[in-house]
Design a protein around this nucleic acid. Sequence first.
RNA 1: GGCGCCGUAGCCAAGUGGUAAGGCAGAGCUCUGCAAAAGCUUUAUUCCGCAGUUCGAAUCUGCGCGGCGCCUCCA
Length: 479
Amino acid sequence: MPLEIYNTLTRTKQPFNPIHPESVGLYVCGPTVYADSHVGHAKAYIMGDTVHRYLEFSGYLVTYVQNITDVGHLTDDADEGEDKLLVKGAAEKKHPMAVAEFYTRRYYEDMTRLNVLPPDIAPRASAHILEQQELIQQLIDKGFAYVVDGNVYFDVARDTEYGKLSGRKSEDQAASGRVESRTDKRSPQDFALWKRAEKGHILRWPSPWGDGYPGWHIECSAMSAKYLGLPFDIHGAGLENVFPHNECEIAQSECGTGVKPFANIWMHNNMVTVEGKKMGKSLGNSSYLRDLFEIYDPLTLRFTILQSHYRSTTEFKPEAIEAAGAGYQKLLDTYYRLEQKVGDVPRRALTDEERAHPLVKQFVAEMDDDFNTPKAVAVLFDLARETNTTLADPNRYDTLEGLLQIWRALADDVLGIIPTGRAQGQDNLAGPLMEMIIGLRNQSRADKNFALSDKLRTELDKIGIVLEDSKQGTTWKKK
RNA sequence: GGCGCCGUAGCCAAGUGGUAAGGCAGAGCUCUGCAAAAGCUUUAUUCCGCAGUUCGAAUCUGCGCGGCGCCUCCA
């Protein structure tokens, strides 16, 4: 079974056939950098990261592009809306670009802690004004856009395919009942490609239509085309971006360039909910990642997110994180026990024999089914059981190295849940010291001096070190 | 009003026609000086309700109830 991916465009799972047999172009809508990232961002970018990692594991050369939106855009679609970066800049007494710079860095810090690999290219909207203007000009030249007093709007009526992603028909939307403010658009559905900058608007660039700034959707159209070429394979985003953002992207890219579809597969991740309701920056119920990292281990959060499917909602609940964390810790304990036993062996790709291991095949089958990470994680628990069983049986120790490589491939490379740079007890002093203490304790156990041996164990526990006795000897770990 | 989604054990959560994955919590057992860890066994006759299609439905259809998303910035 080849990889199948659910495509929002067709509302079905379809076999993944990349445009070029050995490489994949992947674009995921990045953040608007005017605030810190919350759990919803974590879900979205862990999805992108999982696609990225799994495609590489599957042997593709992936070019992963994710934009940074550092042009403010508007807090609402009315002409009088405020630019978020401007608002934040004024509040913090900073230049809007300083705000963008600040939150961009923090975004990458948060993602790094979640073990999200950085994209290959992270283009900034502000650095691609020319590309955006070129696309706008193309749209004007082809009659898909019109200029009104320094604003450029996309003429939705001219695009017969508008609505194909979201399933919306503009006529239906007209009866929306929402208040439409006074505007110079020909139709309420038309959306801005270029906005005239009013005086006082700091983020502004010269253009053929006057000083202004680009509309919200155009940067993704311009930058995906620049770095991936058209068409490209996969475009990902959060579900709430289906309309209007992604719909508008399609309209701009396809009408402007004539390439249809400009992205073959559209992937959308569902939301993180709090008590059943969407977590959102504007809803006041978001939990910022950097606050959560004070309470929960970042990889526990990653693991929790991976335990639900990307197209399902994920209920954010402390009890759920703690429950997931308990299971996650067991997996890690098993992994470390295995690593300790096998010793320092170099990483390598899986052999054909290892790839044929039933659990590896099952893991691959689950991931091939639209990145079913909850099932893939379930396979990891089977792998843990097999690992523990093998560790308890010296006759099977010859298979341990292979198991370790499998763990590294599945849990580390693909799912990204193995902490990096952890050197358990590799502090020069701790190892020999612990060996000595364990030796003393085992001597007292042999002497039936359990009062002393238990005291040693209790005292070690107090300083955060746990001893575990087994037939294969005594091991220790930090709590 | 339009478009769309969801409702599975105490909790989290897979499963979209073949007779309920996995994790947490709970119970029992094995090992063990004890503990911990690990292993084994066990925990939904049933998938919001009702009706229908089918040899067979959590999975398809209809109706109802409950919840949510988008249509405005949003991952």
